[in-house]
Design a protein around this nucleic acid. Structure first.
Length: 668
DNA sequence: GTAGGGTTAG
């Protein structure tokens, strides 16, 4: 930690001033592209008298694409005087990997000669894109290609399977003139990922031959369907026959991770302990069935997920062949426990931290509210990716630095990084938090252009609109979600209605939600009780409060009590409201006392108003509101001595009256 | 240069 602090360097950033300026910047930068790369870098290679031959240049292109530098590869491609099919296929690979199918297609159409790999590449690209339009395009090419190999068929089958179209996948599988083991694995995985366990097992048993992937595919597919015990049976059954199969440890590792995901750490450990472990590495033979580094990493991950960092550290200490995964898993474990000292310690000990290590540190510091250190890591990392930007933006958002978040978003686009759902979700939270409807609408436009919203992103949109009072817009998104809604969608709508005075709608939605068996959360009840408070529905409010506890087993929080005090107090039962406060299982906060004070004001209970006001001034010594309210109440009943005393206390404590609170009119 | 299976970050 000391090392980190000593290298800390505060980076001051110029910030745009107003929301309008932010909006303007947002529009202009969204249209800009990344002009960072200079084409001159490669010119020497082609103009040189000893020009490298085609094979070397092809290798260079492949290398660039493997490191994600597709634009650089394209520059090199454009400068090459001689190209062969491999050159073309390589550059197409780059675009296919980035799912830029229009660019890939243009090159495919332009290339002088196509081989089966070129066709396969295009099909693979199309079927990996979201949306049926693309898979049809892939099928179109598949139907028209001059000759097909195993890869063509298997790619098409996988494409259908990934889109849930198992009828077509299975039909193609059955139409194959010859199948290989990949075809079987692909179709079995397809059935498993679409929930058809029975047929998958049948097919597995009918396979003419299996390879290293077959068993793992079955085990991981079963786990995907929650069939952990069935997976264990298959695995242990197969293990008895021969214990030197190289794929066995692969499948064991899958199951260990599966147990970990479901919190079954003990089962995972039992399985881990069943894998033979030879400490003598000279006998190390890949084909032997023994623990490998993934087994260790998976087991460590189980402990990390379960929050048992001690056991994780114990295993980590025993490892002799740690890899980057091991270190990163441990770092993320400490990050999850908010132990940034230990995370930093590991990070510093790592010989070669990769992008995940850096990102974990950023998100850890950002989450803890240490934005300076988070930004310092962000600034110093050798390469950033989308997660790095998102972690930083979400850090600003979570810590209420709205401008920081927006500014980083602008910078991100200027540097050519494309935002995704996570980015937009954070930005919409920023808009909701700062009630910035105009900006929120602009971001909504970007969302429509750039991503297909999922449930959490739609929820962010609803929350943003609802918070800004644009209930109709919020409702439109809610309705578009159809069956995809979750409890957060409902909470956002009910909260929006409740906080903008539409109590009837809020309560109606709550009724529908319950009818649809969506389980409410404590947040739902905060809105429901607020709606009752606004509408003066005393009995209904008390009924909901009771049902929250008895029917849904939700522990009431201080927010619920604040609402209940409001409901009861405003109805004139000020003494009952006071009794509620006295019997609360925790310390009342300012919302609770504020509700009581409001009720006292309406019902002219000066004595309790004094109690509430004094409590409030203790919680918020700098606020003038309780003084002003109390002053006015005393004045109203002619108790001028008390009124004057309030003013004197206020002056003595150097409290300045805030705008919006009038000495003369306290009704606001 | 293309198809299926195991562990890490937002």
């Amino acid at each position: 930690m000391f090392i980190l602090k000593s290298t800390f360097f505060f980076f001051s950033r110029r910030r745009p001033q107003s929301q309008r300026q932010l909006s303007h910047l947002l529009i202009t930068t969204c249209m800009q592209n990344n002009p960072s790369w200079s084409p001159l870098r490669f010119t020497s290679t082609t103009q040189n008298s000893h020009a490298p031959d085609l094979r070397i240049l092809n290798k260079k292109i492949t290398h660039l694409i493997r490191s994600g530098r597709v634009d650089d590869a394209k520059q090199l491609f454009d400068e090459m005087t001689e190209r062969n099919t491999v050159t073309w296929n390589s550059i197409i690979t780059g675009y296919v990997q980035r799912r830029e199918m229009t660019k890939a297609r243009k090159l495919f159409d332009e290339m002088p000669e196509r081989d089966v790999v070129s066709w396969n590449l295009m099909i693979s690209g199309y079927v990996s894109c979201r949306g049926s339009r693309y898979i049809e395009e892939g099928r179109y090419l598949f139907d028209r290609m001059p000759e097909r190999d195993f890869v063509s068929w298997n790619t098409m089958i996988t494409g259908y399977a990934r889109n849930g179209r198992m009828d077509e996948a299975f039909y193609l599988f059955n139409s194959m003139p010859k199948k290989n083991v990949v075809s079987w694995n692909a179709v079995i995985s397809g059935f498993l990922h679409n929930g058809d366990v029975k047929i998958a097992i049948e097919l597995y048993e009918r396979m003419p031959e299996r390879d290293a992937a077959s068993l793992s595919a079955l085990v991981s597919g079963l786990i995907h369907n929650g069939e952990l015990d069935k997976a264990a049976m298959v695995l242990l059954g197969s293990g008895k026959r021969d214990d030197d199969r190289e794929d066995l440890v692969h499948a064991y590792n899958t199951l260990i991770a599966g147990y970990g995901q479901r919190g079954r750490v003990d089962d995972a450990r039992r399985l881990f302990d069943q894998i033979p472990f030879s400490s003598d590495r000279r006998r190390g033979d890949d084909r032997r069935f023994e623990r490998n580094v993934v087994s260790w990493n998976s087991m460590i991950m189980c402990y990390v997920k379960a929050g048992d960092i001690v056991s994780a550290q114990e295993l980590f200490d025993q490892m002799v062949d740690r890899d980057t995964f091991s270190w990163n898993t441990m770092i993320s474990g400490y990050v999850n426990m908010s132990d940034m000292d230990e995370a930093s310690n590991l990070f510093c000990k790592m010989s070669d931290p990769d992008i995940l290590s850096w990102n974990s540190m950023i998100s850890g510091f950002a989450h803890m509210g240490n934005l300076e250190l988070a930004y310092d890591f962000f600034r110093r990392m050798p390469q950033k990716n989308l997660v790095s930007w998102n972690s930083m933006i979400s850090g600003y958002e979570k810590n209420g630095d709205c401008e920081g978040a927006i500014e980083l978003f602008i910078q991100m686009q200027a540097e050519g990084e494309k935002p995704d759902r996570h980015t937009f979700s954070s930005l919409l939270s920023v808009c909701a938090e700062s009630v910035a409807l105009q900006l929120g609408m602009q971001i909504h436009q970007q969302v429509i252009k750039m991503v297909v919203p999922d449930v959490p992103l739609n929820n962010s949109l609803i929350t943003m609109y609802a918070r800004c009072g644009a209930i109709i817009e919020a409702r439109a998104i809610f309705d578009e979600m159809k069956l995809q809604k979750d409890v957060i969608s409902w909470n956002a709508m009910i909260g929006g209605y409740a906080s903008h005075g539409f109590s009837a709608e809020a309560l109606e939605f709550f009724g529908v939600m319950k009818k649809l068996k969506v389980r409410p959360t404590y947040i739902t009840f905060i809105s429901v009780l607020n709606a009752c408070a606004h509408a003066g529905l005393v009995e209904e409010g008390q009924m909901h409060f009771r049902s929250m506890v008895s029917e849904f087993g939700i522990e009431p929080r201080v927010e619920h009590f604040a609402s209940l005090v409001d409901i009861v107090g405003r109805h004139g039962q000020v003494e009952e409201a006071m009794a509620l406060i006295n019997n609360m299982p925790f310390e009342p906060d300012k919302a609770v006392w504020g509700a009581l004070l409001g009720a006292c004001r309406v019902h002219n209970n000066v004595e309790l108003a004094r109690v509430a006001a004094e409590a409030l001034t203790r919680l918020e010594p700098e606020s003038s509101a309780p003084y002003v309210l109390l002053y006015n109440m005393y004045a109203d009943v002619g108790r001028w001595d008390d009124a004057t005393e309030v003013r004197m206390v206020m002056e003595r404590n150097k409290i300045r009256k805030q705008p919006g609170y009038s000495w003369a009119d306290s009704s606001s």
